[in-house]
Write a protein that binds this DNA or RNA. Sequence first.
DNA 1: GATTATAGTTAGAGAAATCTAACTATATTT
DNA 2: AAATATAGTTAGATTTCTCTAACTATAATC
Lengths: 138, 138
Amino acid sequence: MEKLVDVLAKLSREIGHLEEAAKDQFDFKELTLTQMNYLETISQLGNPNLTELSAELHLTKPTVKAAVDKLIEKDFIYRVKSDGDRRSAHFHLTVKGKLINHTHDFAHKQMAEIIIGKLDETEVGLLGMLLEKIFRNP
Amino acid sequence: MEKLVDVLAKLSREIGHLEEAAKDQFDFKELTLTQMNYLETISQLGNPNLTELSAELHLTKPTVKAAVDKLIEKDFIYRVKSDGDRRSAHFHLTVKGKLINHTHDFAHKQMAEIIIGKLDETEVGLLGMLLEKIFRNP
DNA sequence: GATTATAGTTAGAGAAATCTAACTATATTT
DNA sequence: AAATATAGTTAGATTTCTCTAACTATAATC
């Protein structure tokens, strides 16, 4: 257990570094840390409305409205009116906004390459199976 | 490769969620997202001085000075004068500031528990060995 | 159908985060 | 030892982030 925790820490630190590096590359100087956080949260929640997004971020609705208005203006997200409820609308990432996820994808791809460089084919297959088993549903 | 990337994405997303949850728990409402980022970066750099911290964050020195002054006031970090260079000082996390790292530790421990719940003893041992091999130095 | 609840908006104010320009003190170079 | 470079600081201004209070429009409940 102790050892497993250690090695998980290393893995997550390594992935963290790779993501940081990817973010630096992807010229996200156009966005503040806070704004990036909004994009990530919108992506994680999967097209939330204002109420859901505010709840997740522990911020008030006027605060979040101001932020998303700015992100819309900068073409990172857009609004889609709800069919069911005419009061409400959901936020979607634009193509530009989805770049934020590419930083994750990039990091994971690099990690995969590191792994393939360190393990032989059998071991890679084994690792894949084990991780898959961990995330299998039931 | 494709499959490995997928499963790494799941793993890192899962650890991410656990860290978010841990942060919520640890009543870091006292800190803004930005301030948490300062603490994490100070921890990662290992007691940087103002110049190093500014460079890493891509921010000007007056900006970073204002931020660290506030973190010192709130007792999350402290200044240690450099022996060699009398102009300079390094930032260290206080006991309170180190709590930021506990959120990571917490997440990794929980992840380890999930893994132990999903795999049998042999498989856990195997996974540990594989991950260790990945992070072995040469 | 009237009342209450929910989703989002607007206006205005204050705190947080950032910058540039100008400065002091110590180190390094010439 | 004079000139230049580096580490950090100060002052002042601007932008970003956040809040509360009051509002509109639609939905749900009674």
